[in-house]
Simulated assay, not measured.
Amino acid sequence: MITIIDYGVGNLFSLSSSLNYLGLENKVSRDPEDLKKADHIILPGVGAYGDAIAKLRGSGMAEPLLEEARAGKPIMGICLGMQLLFDKSYEYGKHRGLGLIPGVMADLREDIPANLKVPHMGWNSLHLTEKGKKHPLFKYSKEGDYVYFVHSFYGKDCEESLLATSEYGIPVTASAANGNVMGCQFHPEKSGEVGLRILKAFAEI
């Protein structure tokens, strides 16, 4: 069973539909008990960091999620969900994250060439790091696979956790992992067959 955390932020329907398409049992839930019963957990998210982390903590799901992470359960964050797994974010202030993946969330506008638009939106190719090539999340993926992004902030100071980058004026963090906790800045559920293969690989971890 894959439990998708519902804390009022995230595109839950398309994610659940993608898992259903793959024949993977899944449940969208606000119940902490479902995190304990789950084999895998997905933390989705769209919108602003400060609002999302407050809603996650206010939902009562943050601490149970941390407990399951410490217990070694496979956990994946998607888009803003991945960002929440990091130590902190500088999106409209400074916000403390869950601290499950070392690193911070920085503003793309401060680091990419001025002629590039923010948010970074649309299809872009994945460049797998040496760690990423060996990671089970990408066992069905290949160098140059295209995935769909929508984001204005990106993972920084996370070199040891990097699984994949995408070029947008600079190498932008596309995926990172720390042990059993992993994240995708892009949307697998919006990335066609490539994304479905990543979700399938996650379910097999």
Results as ranks from 00 to 15, higher is better:
5 I>H: 05
7 Y>E: 10
8 G>E: 09
9 V>Y: 02
10 G>T: 11
10 G>F: 09
10 G>N: 09
11 N>K: 08
14 S>Q: 13
14 S>E: 14
16 S>N: 03
21 Y>G: 09
21 Y>P: 08
24 L>M: 03
25 E>W: 06
29 S>Q: 08
32 P>G: 12
33 E>F: 05
36 K>T: 10
42 I>D: 01
42 I>E: 05
46 V>R: 01
53 I>G: 02
54 A>Y: 07
55 K>F: 00
59 S>N: 00
63 E>P: 01
64 P>V: 01
66 L>V: 04
67 E>N: 02
67 E>R: 05
67 E>W: 03
71 A>T: 02
72 G>L: 06
74 P>A: 00
75 I>H: 04
78 I>C: 01
80 L>F: 04
81 G>T: 03
82 M>L: 15
83 Q>R: 08
86 F>E: 05
89 S>T: 12
92 Y>A: 11
92 Y>G: 07
92 Y>N: 14
93 G>A: 13
94 K>Y: 14
95 H>L: 08
96 R>Q: 14
98 L>M: 15
98 L>T: 14
98 L>W: 13
100 L>N: 15
105 M>Y: 02
105 M>F: 01
105 M>I: 10
108 L>I: 07
109 R>K: 15
113 P>T: 04
113 P>V: 04
115 N>L: 11
118 V>T: 12
120 H>T: 11
121 M>T: 13
123 W>I: 05
125 S>W: 06
126 L>P: 06
127 H>I: 14
127 H>L: 15
128 L>C: 13
128 L>G: 11
129 T>A: 07
129 T>D: 03
